[in-house]
Every structure is written in structure tokens, then in C-alpha cells.
Amino acid sequence: MSELRFDGKVAIITGAGRGVGRTHAIELAKRGARIVVVDPGVALDGSGASAAPAEEVVNEIKALGGEAVASFEKVNDVAGAARMVELALDSFGGLDILINNAGTSVPELFDIQTLDQFRMLNEVHYLGTVYVTKAAWPHLCKARNARLVNTISEGPLGIHERGTGYGGAKAGVIGLTLTLAAEAKYHGVGVNGFAPRIATRLSAPDVLAHVYDRPAALFEKNMAMFPPELSSPAALYLAHESCKLNGVLLAAGGGLVLRMSIMENAGYKTDDISVESIAANIDQILDMSSATQFGIGATPFLPEPVKA
């Protein structure tokens, strides 16, 4: 099969100094894209700052013969979001790809998680995605075959405890992704979600030990089984102009790629609805054996743009 190249494309990748964002940046650059590496180098709780993560990735890309510039802006700063987009325009003359990847995590039980932590997680994951996308959107709409990839998560599905803050924020990103994809017919911008299954500092053994109340040693093998390199290709595919998917959520890790979706079944209908009739027919209401795609997922391909 032929290599999917990104020659001439300009990409902004947030949270690109470490983890899967770093892999996105390096692999896109290897395939010809010019990269704005965004990373303020903060700790998981949002404290501190360091230019090192972004600069190291830029230097690595340049050593490979690619083009990249570093941005140290925070995604949860409206002015900072605008500046990272301006940097792309000033440095490379346009913008074709945005991968919203920046994120953080403070896993804790709901009754222990503080309101400040809930607020911070939403500001980074949800509002950060909104701010950067809002700044980039006019330029993506002007570009030909632009692509937006939002980093989502399986966390909102309730797969583990201590995830209400993170999962709630990521659920907002899923909703934003699907509803923005519904507007793609006006602009021709493919909008999709990418849920990485990777071992990074957000899922380090000590973090998972806290989440699951198990010894950290039990999770050490995850670092080898779920490297970013076995997840990132799914995001790069969604970012390629040949990908005509729209409103699709892909999860990837450990060499596995799968689709996440929202489904609905036929349900139960009666002219005499009551609490009792619902109780009597709850099995039919819950039966998903014949469920179908719901919403934008039912038409998962990019339509031809039309005038608003």
C-alpha cells in the first residue's frame, strides 16, 4: 500500500511535548507536515511550566530534516489559543490540521474530588478544546480538505472509578466533536474523535494503582504493551486528507483500532404509557441486539460542502 503523506500540510498539535502528542508530531513531520508543537510543560495538576518538552520535540523534528516551531501557550487561555494559531500562520502561511491533544488528570472519588479540580479539568479538556478550535476554525474552513481531530476518551463510559472529573470533561469533548461534525457540510472540514489507549504519565503505574486500589507493580507491563506508537497511527489517519470520515470516534492502542459509537434501539411504544407499562417492558427497552447508529454516526462520511 502507498504511504500516506502530509507534504505541504501545516498542523497544530497541543500537548505535543510528551506522550502520544509527541508521537503525533514526530510522525506527521516524518511524513512531510510542518508542525506547531504546543506544550507549556506543566505538571499534571497544571502547576509549573517548562519550555523543554516542546523544544526537545522541535529539535528532534529538525534533526530529522523536518520543519517545526514551538509554542508554550496553555489551551485554557483564550489569548494563548489565538497566539498558537497566529504562530502557525506566521511561520508556515496556513493551517490544515488541528489535533487537540492537551490534557491532564486528577483521578479521585466523586466525594473527594474538589470543585476546583472539576473546574480545572473542564477548563483544560473541554474549554481548551473549544478555545483552540474556535481560533483555528476560520483557517481550517479556508483550507482545502482540512481535518480536526479531538482527543476523546473511553472514560465517560464509566469504565473505572475515580473518573467523574476527567470523564465528565471528556464527555464534553465528545459532544463538541459530534455536534461540530454535523456542521461539516457547510465547510468540508472532517471532524472526528480519537481515544488513545496508551501508557503515559496520565496512566503511569502509580496513577493506575490509585485508581484501582491495586499495587503499582501490576500495571508496569502496561508501559510496554501500550506505547504511543501503537496508538498514534489512528489519529494520523483521521488527519489525512484522504480520510473522508466525519463524526466518527476511533479508539486505538496496543495495535488495536476500534470504533466507538452512540446507538439506539427500537424501544417500546404504546398509546397507554405508564410507569407500570415501562416496568413491565423494561427488558425490551434495554435490548440493544438490533440497535443502530444514532445521530451523525449514522452518516459517517464527509459530505460535499454547501453554502450556509
Rank of each mutant, 00 (worst) to 15 (best):
F194A: 03
T177P: 01
Q117A: 15
V58E: 00
V207I: 12
E154S: 13
E241W: 04
H160T: 11
N265G: 15
L218K: 14
I174P: 01
A146N: 09
A235D: 06
G155C: 14
M225W: 15
R22P: 06
N265A: 13
Q113P: 03
N281Q: 12
Y186N: 15
V57K: 02
I35R: 00
F110D: 09
V57Q: 00
M1E: 12
S290D: 15
D96I: 06
V37R: 00
R119E: 15
D90G: 12
V207W: 08
A63K: 14
G175Q: 11
D213V: 11
A43L: 14
M84D: 01
N265Q: 07
T129I: 03
P196R: 02
L256S: 11
R18S: 08
A88Q: 02
A266H: 14
L4T: 11
K134V: 02
L245K: 11
G190D: 09
L4W: 10
E27V: 09
A184T: 12
L109R: 10
R34G: 02
E264T: 12
A29C: 11
I282M: 15
F110R: 00
I12V: 06
V20R: 03
G66D: 00
G167E: 00
L286P: 08
P40D: 06
A199M: 03
A146S: 13
P138L: 14
N100L: 01
F72M: 03
G103H: 01
L256N: 12
V257Y: 05
L28G: 02
T270M: 05
P156S: 04
K9Y: 04
G247F: 06
D90F: 07
A266W: 07
E86L: 10
P156K: 06
A171V: 06
G103A: 04
R259V: 08
E3T: 11
V189L: 07
L127A: 11
R22V: 09
R31N: 09
G155E: 09
L44E: 04
V257M: 12
V10L: 12
R162C: 09
V130I: 15
H210W: 07
R197G: 14
L258R: 13
F118R: 02
L121R: 04
P156F: 07
N265H: 13
L256A: 11
G295D: 02
D90I: 02
R214K: 14
V149K: 00
G267Y: 04
T164W: 02
A63H: 06
G93R: 10
A29F: 07
A266D: 14
P228I: 07
G172P: 06
Q284F: 07
G193A: 12
G103C: 00
V124E: 03
A63S: 15
A63V: 10
R147C: 06
L140H: 05
V207R: 03
E220Y: 07
P305M: 05
Y166L: 06
L218T: 13
P300S: 04
G15V: 02
L250E: 03
H139N: 13
V78C: 10
I97V: 14
A88I: 01
L245G: 05
S289E: 15
I99D: 03
A224F: 12
S231F: 09
W137I: 05
A252W: 05
V85M: 10
